[in-house]
Design a protein around this nucleic acid. Sequence first.
DNA 1: CGGAGATTTGAGATGAGTCAATCGTGGTGG
DNA 2: CCACCACGATTGACTCATCTCAAATCTCCG
Lengths: 227, 227
Amino acid sequence: MNSNLKLNNRDRAVLMKTPFLQGLSANSVVRMLSTMSVLNLPVRHSVFREGDRADAFYCVLNGYVRLYRLSHEGREADIRICGPGETFAECLLYAGEKYGYHAQTAENTTLASFDIQAVRDIAVEEKDVAQAVMASLSRHLLSTMECVANDRLFTAPQRVANYILARCPVDGGPAAIRLPFQKSLLAGMLGLAPEALSRAFSTLRKFGVTVRGRAIQVVDVSNLRNV
Amino acid sequence: MNSNLKLNNRDRAVLMKTPFLQGLSANSVVRMLSTMSVLNLPVRHSVFREGDRADAFYCVLNGYVRLYRLSHEGREADIRICGPGETFAECLLYAGEKYGYHAQTAENTTLASFDIQAVRDIAVEEKDVAQAVMASLSRHLLSTMECVANDRLFTAPQRVANYILARCPVDGGPAAIRLPFQKSLLAGMLGLAPEALSRAFSTLRKFGVTVRGRAIQVVDVSNLRNV
DNA sequence: CGGAGATTTGAGATGAGTCAATCGTGGTGG
DNA sequence: CCACCACGATTGACTCATCTCAAATCTCCG
């Protein structure tokens, strides 16, 4: 849970490749980095809570962060899972002054934290920063809309098949991928209970999908496409 | 389906009050309006189709537009319902070059259409336009995330109760509201089949909700809050 | 090798979709 | 202004998908 300004090489590489900093002028990058601090959080640790005053947004350097809402009775629903290179809560730059959901680490996680007011000021002066913000917001909006559509259109096995297909490097024939995190996290990401994910995988067996731990093997990718 | 540059007074008032133009400098407003054209579309008419090249985004001046996706088998899932003053597809300003969903009028509708490339150029020069874009994207992202959370956390009657509560002008006691559109549109907006919305309303009867046509009466708003 | 936590499996309950029939309503035209 | 019609809304019966709870099993880490 310590916070400092020093980055190791891997984290620095992830940070520079994030769409947010990618393509900025050297000057803008320097200004952005000057508003930034790094923090290391243990697994299952809160980053912020719904209703907290929003004074920072974040970029995941390592690990995974879960954004979720709680119901009155304490059930939780994941809204988004953020992995290395992804930013979250940057919508607070221009709307609302409180976080609208909880954020919690799903693993030991390294985050870059940016001061919202400082970045707001930079964006006014540096056009490329404003552009980066707009591009990031646009992409997140599109993917969240896609999430709504997926939830409403597809069944559990179809959503799992989509997830696998989106990560298969090939268009046809056999493929193998490896989940970057626990299955329970994938379940939440797809809007499923862990049991439902498990059953979805077993439904996909008859379409040539084999799962062992985090390793997923697909006999024929094109087969999976007509689930 | 005619397109022209002349606005009637009501449409002009809606246009100027939309968050997109609200708060812009006079100069920016003029520039934005110069890239704009107005179109009138009959009910159930396509605005654009998924996969079309995205060269415009829109602001609803009158009527309602449904954004939705199609499944392979032809089922449709609504992603967002846009009413007067709301903009849609502005995420295409900075991500992707094709529309990611279908847009169709749900009533006779008047739209303002903005040329995407032109607005992109204006946003580079006019800071307030860039800010308006960011604010609009931020708000849409937040509300879409909220939509995901609602779908995953709440049952049909709860979502309907939320919708009603969000539109009740009072905090407690009796209230009456009027739906601005058909129930089938509300159903899609909440991710429900029309029959499910109907049943949700009848479930809410025992919580003091009366529905007659588009008119909804609530005996005690605070009662509705613990559905 | 042990054990905690994650995953799988089973059984049951429930929410929501589909299809079909009926009912109500608003809009149109006479 | 009224009657009628077409379409939207409701209701019922049924099916299917997913959640929940509980128990069994697996897996990974120390």
